[in-house]
Computed example of a mutant assay.
Amino acid sequence: MISRIGFDDDAGILSISFRDTGTYLYYDVPAETFEAFCHAASAGSFFNELIKDRFRYARDPERRRFGPNA
């Protein structure tokens, strides 16, 4: 489901690339949430329980690239 994640610490933007639907940006995500996401046993379960429907998001119109993925 998830192929890559990245985080812009200064802006608090989480980038999630989904295999089937592309990249989405999630706004105002705490750095601690990203760190926990990196260490989650299941990225899909973590996303569904702690990110989906909890943060404002938009499809990445510029397909920006973030740092190393988790």
Rank of each mutant, 00 (worst) to 15 (best):
Y27E: 09
A36W: 05
P68M: 13
A41D: 14
R4C: 01
S15R: 15
D8F: 06
I5V: 07
D60A: 03
S3P: 01
F55M: 01
Y24G: 00
A41I: 00
R63A: 13
E62N: 12
F66G: 01
D60M: 06
M1G: 13
A31K: 13
R64P: 01
A41K: 12
D60Y: 04
R65F: 08
D9I: 02
R65N: 12
D53P: 06
A58K: 14
F7V: 03
D60G: 00
I13F: 08
G44R: 15
S3I: 07
V29A: 04
F46E: 01
P61H: 04
Y24Q: 07
A43R: 11
I13K: 09
S42N: 15
K52Q: 11
K52P: 04
F34R: 00
I51V: 08
E32L: 07
D28A: 14
T21E: 12
I5L: 10
E32G: 06
F47L: 02
P61E: 05
L25S: 06
R65T: 11
V29Y: 11
R63E: 15
A31L: 09
R64S: 09
S42T: 02
A36C: 06
T33V: 12
N48W: 04
I13R: 09
D53M: 08
T23Q: 15
R59N: 04
D8R: 07
A36N: 10
F55G: 02
S17D: 09
A41G: 12
L50K: 13
F34M: 03
S17T: 08
D10S: 15
A41S: 12
A58P: 05
Y27N: 00
P68L: 07
F66E: 07
A58N: 12
N48G: 08
K52E: 08
D8Q: 07
R59C: 03
A41T: 10
N69Q: 15
Y57A: 07
Y24H: 08
A36K: 07
A58I: 07
R54D: 04
T21H: 07
I2M: 00
A40S: 08
R19L: 10
H39T: 13
R19G: 04
A58Q: 10
A11C: 07
A58D: 13
I13P: 02
F46T: 00
D20S: 15
S3R: 15
I2L: 00
D53N: 11
F55N: 03
F7I: 02
S17F: 03
G22A: 01
F18W: 12
C38L: 05
S45W: 10
F37E: 04
G44F: 04
F37R: 01
F47I: 01
N69M: 07
R63G: 11
A36Y: 09
C38G: 11
L50Q: 11
G22N: 05
S15K: 13
I16R: 08
D9C: 09
R56V: 06
Y24E: 11
F7C: 01
R4H: 14
P30M: 02
Y26H: 03
R4A: 10
T23W: 10
Y24M: 02
S15G: 14
F18D: 05
Y27P: 03
I16W: 09
A58H: 09
A58V: 04
D8G: 01
A58Y: 09
R56M: 08
P30F: 06
N48R: 10
